[in-house]
Design a protein around this nucleic acid. Structure first.
Lengths: 173, 173
DNA sequence: CGCTTCTTTCAGAAATTTGTGAAGTTAAGG
DNA sequence: CCTTAACTTCACAAATTTCTGAAAGAAGCG
């Protein structure tokens, strides 16, 4: 109950860190992400990377730590890479791939929601046109569209402010 | 191909509007929402409301327009109401319920993401504590936490700006 | 007070998603 | 060039989710 006990232990996954604490965090944070709509394996992989010592793990390490097949790791990582939540690296001169989160990850991910927004906006624009901009429904769609456009711009500048704030607070990590 | 043709037609759903245009918009916008993670029926109901004349439809109208059972409407609406995407009204002196989107809906919905963020933050705080704030992983979690806290504040003020902007542009809808 | 109309709940059928083992592919190292 | 180590793809089994019809539950209205 008092946070940060020191049951450090049984090496296993990392450099002798408390495997149980790590696992507890991974599972509970992943559960929250799942509840918000992320696929389970992707959420677990992401959480495991967040909680890892260097922010980097190999496929084999993930597979062992989370008790899932290499295939599952592969699928999860594909999803995470597509959505820019992790990046994949290849240790030169090895066929081992390493997956990494960096501090900037959420920044990246949010920035990429832009693509989704754009598609929504396109659908809305079509709607405004085909229903007519001067019908009640058309006006409603137009207002929705305006909201998204507003958000898009605002999020961009918000992210800029985060970059500044972050550098001040954490150095460039 | 040229947007806004005037095949107005076959009454059917609304007040003699072009049912086909409406349906096209509904299905394509809903598809985008689904792709972004929303349940299909919820997405279709929401899109139908957006494209409706008054922003209000009864259960029966939704059921007929979307060709789904009343049960499906019920489930979709429950979800949408929970997430504050629609509000339910009861026409006084009738057991007919009416569901409404208003222009402010996205504002509402986004505001309510706050609850989700709070849970994420809680999970992260636990993680920082149990892994230790001075470990590399702990620092990474702390930075992630800081990002969410930053976003939470920023989104709040962004929404305030939207309210102002909206009123200027559209009047109070 | 019971009838009628609308909505919700429930159990189950159907469809979709998820995770696995096994085979396939790529690339390093001898 | 062959072997071997690693990741990916594929087909399938299992679990979960989704939607429906049917029954049950409210609430107006006679």
């Amino acid at each position: 109950m008092d946070g940060h006990t020191d049951t450090r232990m049984t090496e296993s996954a990392g450099a002798g860190r408390d495997a149980e604490s790590v696992s507890k965090f991974v599972e509970s944070f992943a559960a929250q992400l799942v509840e918000a709509g992320m696929q389970r394996m992707a959420a677990r992989v992401f959480a495991a990377l967040l909680a890892s010592d260097k922010g980097v793990l190999t496929s084999a390490e993930l597979s062992e730590q989370l008790q899932i097949s290499p295939a599952a790791v592969s699928g999860a990582v594909r999803y995470l890479a597509q959505t820019h939540m992790v990046s994949r690296e290849r240790e030169p001169g090895s066929r081992r791939e390493r997956y990494r989160v960096h501090g900037d990850q959420w920044y990246e991910a949010l920035t990429n929601r832009e693509a989704v927004l754009k598609r929504w906006e396109a659908a809305l624009r079509d709607g405004v046109n085909s229903l007519g901009p001067d019908t009640p429904a058309g006006r409603r769609l137009a207002e929705t569209l305006a909201f998204f456009e507003f958000v898009e711009v605002e999020v961009a500048s918000m992210m800029e402010r985060w970059r500044v704030h972050r550098e001040r607070t954490f150095g460039q990590g």
